[in-house]
Amino acid sequence: MTQSAGLPGATRAGPATQVWASDRWRWEATRWIDAVLPRRGITRVPVSPRQPRIRPWSTQLVIDTDHGRAWFKAAVPEVAPEAAIHRLLGDVAPDLLAPQWAVDAERGWILGPDQGPQLRDVATPETITSLWSGVLRRYARLQRASVSVVDRLVDAGVPLLGPLDLVQAWVARGYGHERAADARLLAAAERLLKVGLPLTIEHGDLHAGNVFCADGSSTAAHNARFFDWDDAYVGNPLGSLLIALRGPGYHFGLPDDPERDDRLLRAYLSGWSDVFSTQDARRVAPDALLLARVARLIGWDRALARATEAERAQWQEHPDQWTAEILALTADG
């Protein structure tokens, strides 16, 4: 059976968490960290790296250095290639990404400096809508910059999931059990394609926990940097709004609010106003959000590719939720 270079000692179908929890793996990761830091004139403090969490799709190590705290991340090869995403988006929008010190693309390892607080840690229920509006304008700029490198992103292994690709994935992977769902997803894809939006990078999980910011002041959105690209794909830009519109309610316990959603939508679309009609984008936004739910299903497939049966059972509620939403939105009647 083939071994993965990113998961030493694990078969392609083996559980990643067991590898990452082993002394052998931590020793190998630490040895790599100690090899690459001196090349940047950085020295690791002689304290064993801390491992705050292990998930079926990724794990992190926290490292203390003479230049402050650093973070190491490892991910299964089935998720989006984060090292390549940083490299390619860094060519066109370096100020919108968290900087990296070193990467090992083959093993899916990334090492970079601590970037300070995440937006969800410094925002409040009263400020999140304003701050998130600014972040979405900045994210739209990142997407626009990515248009010039989408082919390179796909060549590097970022999944290509345009509207019709998502419909095909829904059917081919056995998600579709009702013809009504298949037909309505296809109709949504065709309406979306008619608007002519360009393919861009899609974060796949755009919320305030995946955005670094300097502080919680009114200017925090101006220096926001995006990270954690495991769920990324190349697709229709409006799909990013699926998670982005839910984030304020999820993180801050806010009730559903159509006015808040409309404000956030307007902020995001303002970043595209010279490229395509805001009226057209508003008209097909529900279609984009419907298809983005299929992308979330595919993302969970990738994330759990090396999970144990127990881990699959633990996380299954998430793909089940997306499936239920898709079927409810495409049901007859």
Rank of each mutant, 00 (worst) to 15 (best):
S4Q: 11
G6V: 11
G9D: 14
G9Q: 14
T11R: 11
W20R: 11
R24H: 13
R24N: 06
A29I: 02
I33F: 02
D34I: 00
Q51S: 05
P52R: 10
P56D: 09
P56I: 08
H67N: 13
A70M: 15
A70Q: 14
F72I: 09
K73W: 02
A74G: 05
A75V: 01
E78C: 02
V79C: 07
P81E: 08
A84K: 09
A84C: 03
L88S: 03
A98L: 08
Q100G: 01
A105W: 00
E106M: 03
E106L: 11
R107P: 01
W109G: 01
G112T: 08
G116D: 04
V122A: 09
V122E: 04
A123G: 08
E126I: 01
E126T: 11
T129N: 11
S130A: 15
L131D: 04
G134C: 12
G134Q: 12
R137G: 13
R138G: 03
Y139K: 02
A140M: 06
A145G: 13
A145Y: 08
V149S: 05
V150D: 07
R152D: 15
L153T: 04
V154L: 07
D155R: 14
A156W: 09
G157W: 06
V158H: 10
L160Q: 13
L161A: 10
P163H: 09
L164I: 05
D165Q: 15
V167Y: 00
R179K: 08
A180Y: 00
D182Y: 12
A183D: 15
R184L: 14
A188E: 05
L192K: 04
G196S: 12
T200I: 07
E202T: 09
G204Y: 03
D205L: 09
H207P: 01
C213E: 04
C213N: 06
A214R: 15
S217K: 10
A221G: 10
H222L: 13
H222A: 13
N223S: 14
A224H: 03
A224N: 05
F226K: 09
D228E: 04
V234M: 10
P237Q: 10
L238A: 05
G239T: 07
L241D: 02
L241I: 09
L242W: 05
A244K: 01
G247I: 00
P248L: 07
Y250F: 14
G253S: 12
P255F: 11
D257C: 09
P258Q: 10
R260K: 06
D261W: 08
D261S: 15
D262N: 15
D262Q: 15
L264P: 00
L264F: 11
L265Y: 00
S270I: 00
Q279C: 00
D280T: 04
P286C: 11
L289E: 11
L289A: 08
L291A: 08
L291I: 10
L291S: 07
V294Y: 03
I298V: 15
W300G: 01
R302K: 09
R302F: 02
L304I: 04
L304R: 01
E309R: 14
W315T: 01
Q321L: 14
Q321V: 00
Q321P: 00
T323A: 14
L327Q: 13
L329V: 02
A331D: 12
A331K: 12
